[in-house]
């Protein structure tokens, strides 16, 4: 799990570097500070489980096996991108790893995760579906529709709220009727209120493991609120200046990575092993970055491909 967190952190830092070099266009949303949730949940899943994420989805794509070079190439608009440049940062998808998409309309994918969970049960598998979403999604209708349907149909799905305390630029507490935006809504759907320290990968893992077991055994969905903090702004356009300095400092002190490293060392891990994990992640990211920057731009011939199942975009005869 340390390796997972380090890989994501280094990847996101590289994505930010490339943005500063004006190589990443459009928008992107980084998960620096939130790695423990992605790593903890990913460790509790099987390769055949389904994962759905938000536009802040680089971490989840990588932890479902998406090659870093292809993800970076997608951010850079290259032909070798994960979706040949058609999706971009906010729509990363890696079907080979059952990472069934990053969704940029807040809350929509919770309803879609239900469908994958229903399909798994219908087909007689014990796969589960996981939907990650931000605290802001708890105030949109699709969240409530999805929770109610999942509970009513007892679907094998995990709803993981990555509560980073801000919906875009606004403190979630100032726009939400309850203190815990996800957990305080759970009882409305007959679910237990689960809050976990989202900066502690082990704690997240334990909670996810229990929720996965519940889902696999047919007991229905779980709603988990993992409390965390993004170290940067909402998106690349946002310096995050609306957040009090003390608050930022307090959360930087709770950075999940050094915290996890210290825990490993305290439990007797060899520091050289941890150093090697960091060095390997560093090399992986650097190689991916070189490969992505060396790749050709997305081919304009792609423009009218893959609109329809015949591979093209023909709408007439």
């Amino acid at each position: 799990m340390y390796r997972a967190q380090v890989r994501v952190r280094y990847f996101e830092k590289k994505a930010y570097d490339l943005f500063l070099q004006n190589l990443v266009k459009g928008t992107s949303h980084l998960a620096i500070g939130q790695e423990a949730i992605a790593a903890g949940v990913a460790a509790a899943l099987r390769p055949d489980d389904y994962v759905f994420a938000t536009y802040r989805g680089h971490a989840h794509a990588i932890l479902r096996g998406a090659p870093m070079a292809a993800v970076l190439a997608e951010l850079l608009g290259r032909q070798s991108g994960l979706m040949a440049g058609k999706g971009g940062s906010m729509h990363l998808t890696y079907a080979a790893g059952n990472f069934l998409g990053s969704y940029a309309i807040v809350g929509a994918h919770l309803t879609i995760a239900n469908g994958a969970a229903w399909s798994a049960r219908y087909r007689g598998t014990d796969q589960v579906a996981v939907a990650f979403f931000g605290d802001g999604a708890t105030n949109i209708g699709a969240f409530h529709e999805a929770l109610n349907l999942a509970a009513t149909w007892k679907l094998p799905v995990l709803f993981i709220c990555e509560n980073n305390l801000y919906m875009e630029y606004t403190p979630i507490a100032t726009v939400t009727a309850v203190a815990r935006p996800a957990a305080d809504r759970a009882s409305a759907y007959g679910l237990a209120p689960i809050v976990v320290d989202g900066n502690d990968a082990d704690a997240v893992y334990e909670v996810a493991l229990a929720a996965v077991a519940r889902a696999r055994s047919g007991e229905g969905p779980s709603l988990v609120e993992a409390v965390t903090y993004r170290h940067g702004g909402h998106s690349r356009a946002d310096p995050g200046k609306y957040r009090p300095d003390e608050e930022v400092a307090e959360w930087l002190a709770k950075d999940p990575l050094p915290r996890y490293r210290e825990r490993l060392l305290a439990s007797g891990a060899n520091p050289a092993v941890l150093d090697r994990i960091e060095a390997e992640a560093h090399d992986e990211v650097e190689q991916a970055s070189l490969a992505a920057q060396g790749a050709p731009l997305a081919d304009p011939a792609e423009l009218e491909r893959q609109v329809f199942a015949d591979g093209g975009a023909t709408w007439r005869r």
């Binding site: 239900n114 469908g115 994958a116 399909s119």
Partner: peptide
Amino acid sequence: PISEQAILGAAMGAAMTG
């Protein structure tokens, strides 16, 4: 339920998975 987004979302997720 009367949840049009949930209905179509469930259909979509099921369609994506077989």
